[in-house]
Design a protein around this nucleic acid. Structure first.
Lengths: 214, 214
DNA sequence: TTCTCATTCATACGTTCGATTAAATCATAC
DNA sequence: GTATGATTTAATCGAACGTATGAATGAGAA
């Protein structure tokens, strides 16, 4: 059990930073080992491949987030309100302290790389099922297809925030500053809650059902 | 002015398809020329580089969309409603006939590649300014920072739909089918309009202002 | 000390990438 | 029919990629 204090952790940190900044595919192992100031071969020694490294980098951040989400849902009792559910879904990712994590998760949720898509499904499918069940209880009048769509819209809002958090102050002329995490979370929840509670456009909804059957 | 009927167009079509499916970075020029059944060097002959090809592929689809958006806004008169503005923003991209275009635009709006980011800004900054102005008129009571955030949320919903339209029926168990474009557009507009009209969480908003001044 | 084994290191392999070249090919104008 | 200029072709370039190798290194057990 030898080890130059924390080579493995340094690789994870450097990979997290660069994956978030440049994306998974655009970041080479040489970029990562240079940033971490370790030898190139250390990556394939501690992890087995670049894909496994991606998996480890993502899992290190997503799993605590999902535990926190489940904890918040459990703490909210058997029938959480819409706002409580949305908060459990959003707060653990929008409150992240480390600057590098939000861009990393943004890439994870939007990268075309097919391996990343597998990681996404592996870590996020279960939690989205739970969220969906809770939402169905909190919004009993909402058709299930409509609910799916709206949860999907909410995931889009979250992903976009994660992806662009770094450059948002620039392109918004300073109007949008994600650094006040609590204000941002309240803002998103208010916006999404209103969307979830919007009346259902019945004609459109029935047209879909009819086309499905025909 | 010679030309084997449409080498240039075949490259554009193949690139559009593969860029959308695999992303810009993961798609090599050899993939594209194989799909288009043209010689590898044809790409650097008709376009100058891969980056220029990306620009051409994206511009070919985005520019007509933006013209349509501006046309819809102009046709709605001097004071369009919130729903009219959202429809002008969303319909031209969500109604697209060619299956390959939506994934392509999804990549364009979420790819980490810095050149793609430049393309995005080049083609979408002007239209988003116009949308922002119209929204400010339609929602006079909404603070400008709040409006920016909500427009940003709306862009997130649109981007997510574009990015995942291909796989959405699978992962939703058939509940979400983007093929009925009109129903989808109505759905998104209802959802977003409710979000835009949500009451502003004043305490959170004022906290941001205070922190900005202090 | 000496042995052991986990770790680090410099180096290289085979592949694929975007880009380039010069020759071959083709359509049109004269 | 021949000259001209646009286009296509096969072949190759140097660079960068992920991965692998075998020799050095270093700490702890004997």
């Amino acid at each position: 059990m030898n080890e130059k204090v924390d080579t493995k952790a340094r690789i994870l940190d450097a990979a997290e930073k660069l994956f978030g900044e440049r994306g998974f595919e655009s970041t080479s192992l040489r970029d990562i080992t240079a940033e971490a100031q370790v030898n190139l071969a250390a990556v394939n020694y501690h992890f087995q491949s670049k894909d496994s490294l991606i998996d480890a980098v993502v899992a290190r951040r997503i799993e605590p987030i999902n535990r926190l989400r489940l904890g918040m849902l459990d703490a909210a009792g058997p029938n959480p309100t819409l706002e409580q559910i949305l908060r459990a879904f959003l707060l653990p990712v929008l409150e992240l302290k480390r600057d590098a994590v939000m861009p990393l998760l943004g890439r994870t949720l939007s990268d075309p790389h097919q391996f990343v898509e597998k990681v996404y499904k592996k870590h996020l499918l279960a939690i989205s099922e739970r969220i969906h069940r809770e939402l169905a209880k909190a919004l009993p009048g909402l058709p299930v297809a409509e609910l799916r769509w709206r949860l999907y819209f909410a995931a889009g809002v979250m992903t976009y925030i994660l992806s662009w958090s770094k450059v948002l102050p620039d392109i918004s002329g300073g109007l949008c500053d994600p650094s006040d995490r609590q204000a941002l979370i309240d803002r998103v929840i208010d916006f999404l809650a209103a969307g979830f509670r919007a009346p259902v456009n019945e004609p459109a909804f029935e047209r879909v059902l009819l086309e499905k059957e025909g």
